[in-house]
Amino acid sequence: MSPEALRLAAELGGAVLSVPGAAGASGGGSLVLVERIQGHGLSQVLVLGRTAEDLREPLDAATTVQARGLAVNVLGLVPAPGCDLASALDLHRRRLGALVCALDAGLPWLDGKPMLVRRLPGRLARALPVALEKAPMGPLEKAELKGFLADWDKADRKRIFRRPEWREAPDHGQHGGFEADLWPGVPLPEGAELRVPPLVLPEGTALTNALRTALRAATGQPIPFLPLPGDPAPLHALRALTPEATAFRGPARAWELAFEGLSRLPAPPHFCARC
């Protein structure tokens, strides 16, 4: 059993779910599950965090709205170091049950400002760097990003969102090579390996409308959809549980409003390990 998983479980008041074989002999293949269950068979929202801190506000918000009588269950998840998230979610799919949606709370807002995610870069690897094509971006998105990041200079925006720089791969000493972010719409260079696919998230759905409304009401600010540097692999894993998955962060009040909105969305057919 992973000591870090046990520490997280004690800190969050959750349970450790083991993932046999996901992290070899180290025993680090564990998920920490924190349940805020209002009643069996109710609509369920899953919130994934990278750290315990990512779950503080959603769990507090779940407790608050449930105390007011809101009929919704909230499941918080934190992977322990070394966890193969996709394998873990597949193994514990029935334990987690049917979800209205899954939210990744571990992706940060750009410069701490409220936003929703439109596109996430994947990751590619190659023995030697080559020039990457510039990521496509329409004039409206360019203007919105420039206004949102008004204190960024053009070179920084281009380096992050249009033509990322190559970096030495973490396993360089074993296999050699370099890696870079790959934005949607950029062709994979010849001889490169796609390690994590880029991801385009849907906009204008009932889910994103509920989340955008919650952020607007809680912050009093317009909420743009923007590209966000980050690892899309956790969202790929969440979308295997439910296609209604996206990234969301916010203050506790935004989470409260989000849970209220999500509780009104149609729930999938119920199933869980208790049935």
Rank of each mutant, 00 (worst) to 15 (best):
L107K: 06
L48H: 06
G97D: 13
P243M: 00
P229K: 07
D153F: 14
G82V: 09
V78C: 03
L75E: 08
V74T: 09
P139Q: 10
V100T: 15
R7M: 02
P187L: 05
D231Q: 10
A180I: 07
S263M: 09
L226N: 06
L77S: 08
F225K: 01
N209Y: 03
L6P: 00
L42N: 10
T63H: 04
T64N: 07
T63Q: 13
V45Y: 07
S263F: 12
V196W: 12
L12R: 11
V186S: 03
A180Y: 13
L55N: 05
A25F: 12
R94T: 05
G39V: 06
D90A: 13
Q221I: 02
L55R: 09
L110E: 07
A52F: 07
P229R: 12
P114N: 02
L128W: 13
A180V: 10
E168W: 09
E256W: 09
Q174T: 14
P114D: 01
G112V: 09
L120E: 00
P224G: 01
F248S: 00
P268F: 10
A135L: 11
P268M: 10
L99D: 02
F178V: 11
S2R: 09
G261I: 09
T219Y: 09
K146S: 11
G261L: 04
L215A: 05
E35M: 06
Q44R: 15
G106D: 02
G27V: 00
K154N: 12
A247H: 06
A267P: 04
E165H: 15
H92T: 00
P187F: 02
L42R: 12
G230Q: 05
G24M: 12
P234C: 02
Q66M: 11
K113T: 03
D60N: 11
A105R: 05
L124N: 01
P164A: 06
P251R: 14
A52E: 07
L31I: 11
A23I: 04
A206G: 00
P229G: 08
R249P: 05
T242G: 01
E35H: 10
